[in-house]
Structure formats: C-alpha cells, structure tokens
C-alpha cells in the first residue's frame, strides 16, 4: 500500500479493487414475463430454458371479471403458462419483483391495458418491451405505446427480438 495518498486515491486502485469480496448482494428475484401477443409468445419460448427458477413465462388470454357494464377496466386477467396451465394474473404478480410485458408493435393493446391497470392498482410497476419492426406503420407503434405508457415505468422499443433475453439476463431474471 502506498503511503501519502489520500484515502480516495488509495481506495480506487486496481490493487484495492481485489478486496471487494463477491458476497451475494441480492436474493433471487421473482419475475413474471408476460407475452401479450402470439409473436412475443414465440420470442419467449426460446428463452424458457436459460431463465432462472424465479422466472415465470406466461401469456395473456383474456380479462377476468371485466365489469363492462360499469365501463371500468378489469383488474385481473387469465394467463397461461408455457405448459398450457391457466392461472390468475393477481396470483402471479402478488410476490413478483419484476413484471415485464412483451408485445410487438401494432398488436392489440387491450392486454397491456388490463395487465398494466391490474399491476397499477396494486402498486406494481411494470416494464413494457415493444418489439418493433420496420414493416409496422408508426401509427400502430404509437397506439401500442400510448396504451402501455401510463402503466410502465420503463418502456423499451427494440428492433429485433434478441433484446428480450439480453434484458432479462441483465436484470438477473
């Protein structure tokens, strides 16, 4: 150790960096990745094997208990996991740390609205990932974004599906 240096100077050397011990600093996350349309179901299918145990891959089926007569947004939905087993959105998100909605630009936005709203009323923040492609008119992308915007703390518009796995691994999902 060199003497005569300030504490900051000493602490920021490569030698000192060795003393950062690799203790775990996070417990495993629970995440729910929900595909909103068939294109994104396909994108997710290829990821199931790489993901950790805490990750559930699901697809949106339909809103649940929609109170159409009251013109209120549904706050629950029926989902289906990769093996075709049906579950409730509410149960899935109850203890989730990360909720990611994946959809493709131009896909129907109803699902985003229902899920986003259901999460919102439970103070769960969602991340929206929109798979864009050059062939989708910008009007359609805009519609998808406008629906998801109020409910997603982070909206990502990505050209190409490979970003899904990149993002999930960066988030330790």
């Amino acid at each position: 150790m060199q003497l005569g240096l300030s504490e900051s100077a000493r602490a920021t050397t490569a030698e000192e960096a060795r003393f950062r011990i690799g203790y775990p600093n996070s417990r495993p996350r629970k995440s729910r990745i929900i595909a909103l349309d068939s294109d994104s179901v396909a994108a997710l299918k290829s990821l199931v094997d790489q993901a950790s145990d805490g990750a559930h891959f699901l697809r949106y089926i339909e809103p649940k208990g929609a109170t159409n007569s009251l013109k209120m947004l549904s706050v629950d939905a029926i989902l289906e996991d990769i093996d075709g087993k049906r579950t409730n959105l509410v149960d899935e998100i109850a203890d989730a740390d990360v909720i990611v909605m994946v959809t493709s630009a131009g896909a129907s936005a109803e699902a985003a609205e229902v899920i986003g709203n259901a999460c919102f009323v439970r103070s769960k923040m969602t991340t929206g990932l929109v798979l864009n492609s050059a062939s989708v008119p910008s009007e359609q992308l805009k519609r998808t974004l406008t629906t998801m915007r109020p409910f997603a703390a982070m909206l990502v518009v990505s050209t190409g599906a490979e970003y899904v796995s990149e993002m999930l691994s960066a988030l330790r999902v």
Binding site: A17, N25, T127, R172
Partner: peptide
Amino acid sequence: QESMGPIVDRTKENLVSTDNGIIM
C-alpha cells in the same frame, strides 16, 4: 464513477428496470 474502481466489476451489480438505457 472513479469510486467504483478503475474497471467496475459488473458481475456484482443489480440493475433495475429504469436502467434499461444502460442495458440497451
């Protein structure tokens, strides 16, 4: 940024959803 050390060890970080700019 300097306090992270000369080359930060990114295997130890815990990114969150709002870090998507960096992730991307």
